[in-house]
């Protein structure tokens, strides 16, 4: 629909894709000077860290920047069992030969892509160490198994994201890793921008509904300290708007998109529903 990624549907494609002429830019609404900062970091090829709660637009921001900078974007979602060979690459058997296959990180380093390690804290610490040499002046990737080193392509850039919440008290990045990055802090956008986002993401939603949704979301976020693990995200608001657009009544749409997903606590759900009903009940 909007991005290069969707160009050919249902067909396997290589993960390294240059934006093509004719692609539509991903929609992103700048909240402040993050675009300028990112561009500056890119000019100097410094690695960037995106911090912020779930669903506030970190990934979308990066898609947008990659498009603006006309660089391919290679995304790796990190998980607990991600090893360094999942990033760098491994040997495979082919007939009686062994063949080396580059991992996504190596591919990005070679192609001069922007490599995005999403939720890096989830990965095992030993796998995060491989990025160290890429993130300082060396800009070099060591492929231990092959006994090789790759100087990064001059356009290569590394971006990581993480979500500092209390569920990651024990899973924090090592300070030695953190300080190699330019850090951009994201938060849920201010009201007017959030309204704009909803109207843009869900064509056909009335500005009034967007206004109410944003106001309700703002109130819902106040409950974060009362046992919600995650605050109501912009994404959830967009989902709610989508459900309304698809013909659901506003209260139900908010219930299924905003309230039900984030809590199992009856009382919290009731408080959230109070907010929804206050804003949407007539």
């Amino acid at each position: 629909m909007k991005t290069a990624v969707n160009r050919i549907r249902g067909v396997e494609r290589d993960i390294v894709q240059m934006p093509q002429a004719g692609d539509i830019a991903p929609y992103y609404e700048p909240q402040g000077n993050e675009v300028a900062i990112f561009e500056a970091a890119y000019r100097k090829r410094l690695p960037v860290m995106l911090k912020g709660p779930t669903g506030c637009g970190k990934t979308r921001f990066l898609e947008y920047m990659a498009f603006q900078l006309k660089r391919p974007l290679v995304t790796v979602s990190c998980h607990e069992d991600l090893t360094s060979s999942d990033l760098v690459g491994r040997f495979l058997l082919e007939g009686s030969e062994t063949v080396w296959q580059d991992g996504p990180l190596t591919r990005a380093v070679k192609a001069g892509a922007i490599c995005y390690l999403d939720e890096i804290v989830e990965a095992r610490t030993d796998s995060t160490v491989v990025i160290h040499s890429l993130t300082d002046h060396r800009r070099r990737l060591t492929i231990e198994k092959k006994g090789q080193e790759i100087e990064a392509h001059e356009d290569f850039m590394l971006v990581i994201s993480y979500n500092p919440g209390y569920q990651t008290v024990l899973k924090d990045l090592k300070p030695s890793t953190k300080q190699r990055f330019i850090a951009l802090t994201f938060d849920f956008p201010p009201e007017d921008i959030e309204r704009k986002i909803i109207v843009n993401e869900v064509p056909g939603i009335s500005p009034e509904i967007a206004h109410q949704l944003v106001a309700a979301g703002r109130k819902a976020r106040l409950l974060k300290d009362h046992g919600l693990e995650e605050a109501t995200s912009t994404r959830a608001l967009v989902y709610a708007a989508n459900m309304m657009n698809a013909g659901l009544d506003p209260v139900t749409a908010c219930q299924v998109a905003i309230v039900n997903p984030i809590t199992d606590d009856m009382e919290l759900a009731e408080a959230l529903m109070e907010i929804v009903q206050a804003h949407f009940a007539v």
Partner: peptide, 15 residues
């Protein structure tokens, strides 16, 4: 019994 709910509502609307 619904003390917590009421406190949350006050928190929502009045901070």
């Amino acid at each position: 019994d619904r003390n917590r709910l009421l406190a949350m509502l006050l928190n929502i609307w009045y901070g």
